[in-house]
């Protein structure tokens, strides 16, 4: 790991100011992706702004319409949260599929979203539920947040503080894991919002994406058979050692069908 300057602010405004100071600074949340990248010398920030001591960034609140989760809330807390399990069980299930037990004890919601790994799980829930991302500079609608490979709408120095997930009528998440890394080869989040259906896919493209055709079909009838026959085009989908674009396209349909089944349980 390259050397860096280390900062440990105690409030989010100081953190934002420190982060804005240097072009090559990085915010450290749980560190489960960032510390790895730094260890492998793939990332070499000049400054690390550790959010670990910043107050009021963690916690889970539910008001019956939305579940709001603080950016520094660990995956393990989300998956184990009685409130999340009650309001959006699929979100608790999804958080329990991220990384592994130990990673889930450190990794955070905000860190995952800011990193926007193309195969991360959380983006599927954020986009699938049409969540709102609150930052030190305002709010972002999920549909406008994910911009591309490791790219989001966040500006330099902007820090995610919380995410509000609308509570759906029902939702399901199905993940087909890369055997080795356990990241998603394909992960499909399906949410019946009452006034429409959203389908978000992670792992298949440069960042999480929605599938309009499936949303329409499920909007007409929320049932597995509505998507089982829908073939997804493989053009532009990721292709690697573990899964070709064709295989991914096929898996999207299978996982979507199973996510609907899960949502209906």
């Amino acid at each position: 790991m390259h050397a860096f300057n280390y900062h440990r602010p105690s409030n989010v405004n100081d953190a934002a100011a420190l982060a804005a100071k240097s072009a090559d600074s990085k915010l450290l949340a749980g560190g489960q992706s960032l510390v790895q990248a730094m260890k492998l010398r793939l990332a070499a920030p000049t400054d690390i702004v550790d959010l670990g001591m910043v107050k009021d960034l963690a916690g889970i609140k539910s008001d019956g319409k939305t579940v709001t989760i603080g950016a520094m809330t660990r995956h393990a807390e989300v998956t184990g949260s009685a409130e999340v399990k009650k309001a959006i069980p699929a979100l608790a299930v999804l958080a329990g599929m991220i990384g592994d037990r130990q990673v889930r004890n450190m990794g955070t919601l905000g860190g995952s979203l800011a990193n926007s790994d193309p195969a991360a799980d959380y983006p599927a829930a954020v986009l699938g539920l049409g969540a709102t991302i609150t930052t030190t500079k305002g709010t972002h609608a999920a549909d406008k947040f994910f911009k591309g490979l490791y790219e989001t709408a966040l500006r330099p120095g902007e820090i995610i503080t919380s995410v509000s997930f609308p509570i759906p009528k029902r939702a399901g998440y199905m993940k087909f894991k890369n055997q080795a890394s356990r990241f998603a080869i394909v992960g499909v989040f399906v949410a019946d919002m009452g006034n429409g259906v959203r389908v978000a896919v992670t792992g298949a493209g440069p960042c999480v994406l929605r599938l309009a055709e499936m949303e329409k079909a499920l909007g007409a009838k929320f049932a597995p058979e509505s998507v089982a026959g829908l073939k997804v085009k493989s053009d532009g989908l990721n292709s690697d050692l573990h899964a070709s674009a064709e295989y991914r396209a096929h898996l999207i349909t299978v996982m979507a069908k199973r996510a609907v089944e899960a949502a209906m349980k």
Binding site: R8, L28, M106
Partner: peptide, 14 residues
């Protein structure tokens, strides 16, 4: 809680 000590800075355990 179980964590991976290779994936965090010592400072994160302050």
């Amino acid at each position: 809680k179980a964590v991976k000590s290779c994936s965090m800075l010592a400072m994160q355990a302050e």
